[in-house]
Amino acid sequence: MANIREIAKRAGVSVSTVSRVLNGYPYVKEEKRKAVWDVVHELNYKKNINAVHLSKGKTNIIGVMLPTINHPYFSMIVEGIAEEALRYGYHLLFFQTNYDIHKELEALEMLRVKQIDGLIICSHTISLETLELYISDEPIVLCEDIQESHIFSVYIDHYQAFMLGMDYLIKKGHSKIGYCLGRPTSINSQKRKAAYKDALQNIHASIHANWMFHHCLHMGDGKRIVSTILSLAEKPTALLVTSDQVAAGIVLWGKTYGLHVPNDLAIVSFDNHPISEALHITTIELPLSLMGKKAFQMIYDYFSNNYTQPKNEKLPVRLIERASV
């Protein structure tokens, strides 16, 4: 395979001139530039991109680790990341892990060997202790609250957000409140559970295990939730649902099975996805696209401003009142 030394010899120029031409630098005489490109085309020369990355110390590729792309929560974060990546001329490499630790480690290993410049982690199974072993390689940004860690993070206070929803339902006269969560073992879900229990204890209300629904991720899960509620002897009067998609499923399947929102069941959901507006669902807006933008910006600033200390940023949430309570 041809290399730049052979190109320089055939074109009758120096190696440094060939390098300047190939990398688009100005101040090269036109006849020399033409001579170089003539030889490049003659030899069908292609740059060794790995060598270019090694010489520059950067790939202009940012990794994004997420369990699945097919979920509004993560797709909205990705939307923000992608917008900033396009703005600054970066490429994205997605690692869809389905919470498989081995796949998460593959992404971290690519970071370690500098095949990507940084890694944004939307959600993970791997321990923080393991993640911290990789922070000396390139920047990692987590989309969760890890203030005591030495890793960059941009996050939503899910305890505060869940408490906002609980307080709203309580002020509306509800004490028989259940919840719908996604992955019950995640850090965010643990914070939501804590807020749920604290809010009910504050009003001396009972906590019912059969009002707690887990693995609620998609609209289709609404059918399961509605069917279960209708089968209960004692039913909740309100649900706090961590996904607008799931809340929409509850509203729509509720109509089919005769469980009407809000007369039979009040609902407060999360995200402020367009479907919540279409179905008039009261929701707590989570600035997920902004989270993605901020996460990318942290990595960009790391290289631009040479950050040496971790940065953690909390994003605000707000409740949007509609007709489901």
Rank of each mutant, 00 (worst) to 15 (best):
K293W: 01
V18M: 04
S175T: 15
I229V: 14
A161M: 15
A248C: 12
R224G: 05
T308V: 12
L164Y: 03
D137G: 00
I187N: 09
L54E: 05
V241C: 06
H280F: 08
I275M: 10
E42N: 09
G249A: 04
Q297S: 12
G12I: 01
P67G: 03
S324L: 12
V64L: 15
Y90S: 02
Y45A: 03
H71Q: 12
K9V: 01
G118W: 07
H124M: 12
A238N: 08
T125V: 02
F95K: 03
S149W: 11
D137N: 11
T68E: 15
V268L: 10
L200P: 05
N44I: 02
K193S: 04
M110F: 15
L286K: 06
S149R: 14
A295C: 04
E277A: 13
I4T: 13
Y90D: 03
A278I: 07
P184V: 03
Y179F: 12
P67V: 05
S289E: 14
P236I: 09
K103C: 03
I62A: 04
Q115F: 03
Y300G: 00
V246C: 04
A247D: 08
D38A: 13
Y134I: 06
S304L: 12
L290C: 01
I225Q: 04
K114R: 15
H150W: 00
K34W: 10
I126H: 02
Y257M: 15
V40M: 06
I77T: 08
H204C: 10
K9A: 14
V64M: 10
A238V: 09
T237D: 15
I146E: 11
A2F: 03
I151R: 07
T68I: 10
E42A: 14
T68L: 10
S243D: 13
H91L: 13
R112L: 10
R5V: 13
S153K: 06
M76Q: 14
S189I: 04
I135N: 08
D271A: 07
Q96D: 07
K293Y: 00
R322D: 10
K171C: 02
N263Y: 10
V113I: 15
V28K: 02
A35E: 07
L252A: 06
D117L: 05
V246M: 07
V64Y: 05
A194L: 14
Y99E: 14
D167W: 00
Y88G: 00
E30Y: 01
